[in-house]
């Protein structure tokens, strides 16, 4: 083809940036994982770091926290989002104002939101405990105790992400042809049956999409952890995620080799999740 060459000009900017700012750093990170490095001094240690992190209890803890948070995020967010989206889809007034309100948290910077929520979670003067005490409970320690800190983060994430999921579900709901419901009504189906026999199955692709994006996003949780419990995820590392661990290893403890090794691990996990999910998705289609 005579004109073939100029197509390369079209993809050149994207390719150039990818090579320089993603691929090259990725390879470099891979190299770093075989070293002991403070960035000032770097020595080759082969597979040492891989052996090391395999027995690192802190990393295992971070991995557990990350999976825990991701799992409970999805478990709380998706059903609630679907429920609210269904209500929004059926309500005949004030739909836009509601939609705006639910979406506001997603637009809010996590850093700023985390500052506000830290105050709201305060065990002594926070608004949550004030409310609990109003109802006659003792109040919780929220972010100040390992037994409730994860719960606090799950609640925070629920608030921050729900609007996004509601929107996606709403868009999905609007693709379902109303005739389906009408036909079901003629067959005498009640609301619950319609919901479980029509809505949920037809929204499966949407749910799968949300699970994939939610899992990948969840694996990369960092900002709120950093703001709530510093890079170690206090209290007592109870909310430290893998990305926080990578951050701590490098920028705090100056062991960039360990950080890089954990980063490779995270990369592999995310790749595995994506591949599994995509396969699942393709089979569905």
């Amino acid at each position: 083809m005579r004109k073939e060459r100029h197509w390369y000009l079209f993809v050149a900017p994207a390719l150039g940036l990818f090579l320089l700012f993603i691929l090259y750093p990725l390879v470099w990170n891979f190299y770093l994982s075989f070293t002991k490095s403070s960035l000032i001094r770097t020595t080759w240690v082969g597979l040492f770091q891989y052996v090391r992190i395999a027995s690192d209890r802190t990393l295992l803890n971070a991995l557990y926290n990350t999976l825990y948070l991701t799992f409970f995020n999805l478990l709380t967010q998706l059903p609630l989002a679907l429920l609210i989206a269904t209500l929004l889809n059926e309500i005949k007034y004030a739909r836009t104002p509601f939609r705006i309100i639910y979406f506001l948290p997603y637009v809010t910077s996590i850093v700023v939101a985390a500052i506000i929520w830290t105050y709201m979670f305060d065990p002594d003067e926070g608004i949550f405990n004030w409310f609990l005490r109003l109802l006659g409970f003792k109040g919780l320690l929220w972010l100040s105790h390992p037994s409730t800190s994860k719960l606090s983060v799950v609640i925070f994430n629920l608030w921050h992400w729900l609007g996004y999921q509601i929107l996606i579900y709403l868009a999905g709901l609007q693709t379902i042809p109303p005739q389906l419901y009408e036909a079901a009504e003629m067959d005498g189906a009640n609301s619950l049956q319609k919901f479980s026999k029509i809505t949920i199955p037809l929204l499966k692709p949407t749910t799968v999409f949300l699970v994939i994006t939610g899992t990948i996003g969840g694996m990369q949780t960092f900002q709120q952890i950093y703001m709530f419990g510093t890079a170690v995820g206090n209290p007592g590392r109870s909310i430290q995620t893998v990305v926080a661990y990578i951050y701590e290893s490098g920028w705090v403890l100056q062991h960039f080799g360990i950080g890089a090794t954990a980063a490779v691990l995270l990369f592999l996990i995310i790749m595995a999740i994506t591949v599994v999910n995509v396969k699942f998705l393709i089979r569905e289609k």
């Binding site: 770093l32 694996m219 980063a263 490779v264 995270l266 990369f267 790749m271």
Partner: peptide, 11 residues
């Protein structure tokens, strides 16, 4: 599939 967080140090 490359999470931005993992390439931050090399970047």
């Amino acid at each position: 599939m490359v999470p931005f967080q993992i390439i931050i140090v090399p970047l």
